[in-house]
Nucleic acid binder design. Structure first.
Lengths: 330, 330
DNA sequence: GTGAAAGCGCTAACAT
DNA sequence: ATGTTAGCGCTTTCAC
């Protein structure tokens, strides 16, 4: 591997011209069956692979899709990325994965680099917002919606019905007799988080309780340690919370550990409900009741969407349904 | 973003030739300070980004590094991949990540695709073996050694001292009075696994116990479910194992859950020791005693190594030290 | 110190 | 149905 012959060489070997070879490679017609056979035979024989760089230079497009994610580690995003990569590859595209670490500066440089590679499309997984615009490039936003939707651009969104997620969480907690819930969210001004909050409050109201009975806590990063820390804050708030809805399972897992270690019984003293349904949620004791997101679906759909947009199709947003997974923490 | 001007355009605006512009961009000398200033100013003004495709086509090299991994999800590999990406980007390279899912067929197609992109190097993370050779391309193997080392090729290896890891695990178990240990390994014929086994047996012998007292169990995939299943097998073996060394923490975590659920007390009835030290290991109850690998280091070192090899340097293999993390399962 | 020009491998317009 | 050729944006020889 490594060295492959050029189209010119094939033409020479097949006793034809580069144009004809190019035509049979791209099935553009206008060649006889005999020439085709001869050319294909040489291609086979020499295991010819078209140079994508030359093709890309000429066509000002590469079959490359940039995938921008804040951090690949973590069950949620890494599973999405894996699905994106596999589906993209299946469709003949190659993924360029970039971590922003949520840093604006890095994100800017990443986008510049991607630009010089003439990638064909972008998939944004998570990420706070995207200030940088990709003109003429299809972009799909996964999980979080774009800040504002440019009307002249091909974009689409793949995510969950977060309002419903929040609603179901509250509903479940209310059904268990909980009346003073806390809700733990990542950063303010993030659509996913606000919608879960909104849904949660709406359920409170619908069931005849004051929406203001729910108090929101915010976390700077979605990880185990922050789950632990925010739970300490909740417990020590003196507000007598009898339930917590964590907007991510990993936060809830940190929370449960805090509660376990401090002898606070779950769910007897405090009910806990998470969101995502990552594998670890079913393994913790007590097993976490959570709102499942179909996040592996996100990846597949995002890859399909970007390719469809590349083919000029208009793609609808996908808002996937969420589901309550009953376990032991409510 | 998206559209940048070409070198030709810059030449026109600066009133010079493309050759000169190219020289200043690449700092190849042979231009006057005045021309340089003029050219740089235009570059700045128009935010010029060199087209990497054209450059790559011309130079038959792209600043792209292929990273081949069996599965990005999972704490161990995803952390490595994240480090690789970040370090590579810092060094001016871009990562192309590909999942093989341990499938030969996929791996073959991936390598062909990578080849047509004229990538500059390869980083193999995990992976059973690599039948396909990359001629003239530096390749670094992370975690697992290459099957056979081609002498004419630039390769290097980054991994842990697995013999020592196995040795320390056995030593610890022996110190706790355990005499009938089981060891759980991934696939046979994988160097990391065999070395851990070897080290384990060596410790047994060194401390005056028959190496054959240790029985090996194999697992088809390194995940929670297999940890659970193999532990059931171990418990029901009738061999009276009083300790298990799992070659990956995630397997040990599955194991501990099995033991917990079946009322088998850890470490009173069975001692458990893992390897890797993933975050989840510190969170499980009882907290997992394990052999820590410096796996985030793997990523950084691998990226540095591939770039150094690209610069023509000879790079030594890195065999990183392992460390016993004492927790509650021995 | 500078510029003209060839050529990397490919596609597509334009012949024939 | 097939071939010739220009040109994508860049680097690099070679002349001057």
């Amino acid at each position: 591997m490594g060295n492959t012959i050029s189209i010119k060489e094939i033409a020479r070997l097949a006793g034809t011209s580069v144009a004809t070879v190019s035509r049979v490679i791209n099935k553009n017609g206008r060649y006889s069956p005999e020439t085709e056979a001869r050319v294909r035979q040489i291609i086979e024989e020499y295991n010819y692979q078209p140079n994508q760089l030359a093709k890309g230079l000429r066509e000002k497009q590469m079959n490359l899709i940039g995938v921008i994610v804040s951090d690949v580690s973590g069950d949620f995003f890494s599973a999405i990325v894996r699905e994106v990569e596999q589906e993209l590859f299946r469709l003949g595209y190659i993924m360029i994965l970039c971590n922003t670490s949520e840093k604006e500066e890095i994100e800017k440089r990443i986008i510049e680099s991607l630009s010089t590679l003439r990638i064909s499309g972008i998939i944004y997984v998570g990420g706070k917002r995207s200030r940088y615009i990709f003109r003429n490039l299809p972009v799909v936003y996964v999980d979080r919606r774009p800040p504002e939707r440019p009307t002249d651009q091909l974009t689409c969104f793949i995510g969950s019905n977060n309002v419903k997620g929040g609603y179901m969480a509250a509903e479940r907690l209310l059904a268990a007799g909980r009346r003073k819930p806390a809700i733990v969210l990542f950063e303010k001004n993030l659509d996913t988080q606000e919608q879960r909050y909104l849904g949660f409050r709406r359920a409170m109201t619908d069931y005849g309780f004051p929406a203001d009975a729910v108090k929101a806590y915010h976390v700077k990063k979605v990880d185990y340690e922050n789950g632990l820390a925010v739970t300490e804050e909740i417990v020590n708030s003196g507000l007598g919370h009898d339930a917590v809805f964590y907007a991510s399972d990993i936060l809830a897992i940190g929370g449960i550990h805090y509660l376990n270690e401090h002898g606070i019984r779950v769910p007897e003293q405090i009910s806990v409900i998470g969101m995502d349904d990552i594998p670890a949620s079913g393994r913790i004791t007590p097993a976490l009741t959570t709102i499942r997101q179909q996040y592996t679906e996100f990846g597949r759909l995002a890859a399909d969407a970007v390719v469809q947009m590349l083919e000029g199709q208009l793609v609808e947003d996908s808002v996937l349904d969420v589901e309550l997974i009953e376990r032991k923490t409510v």
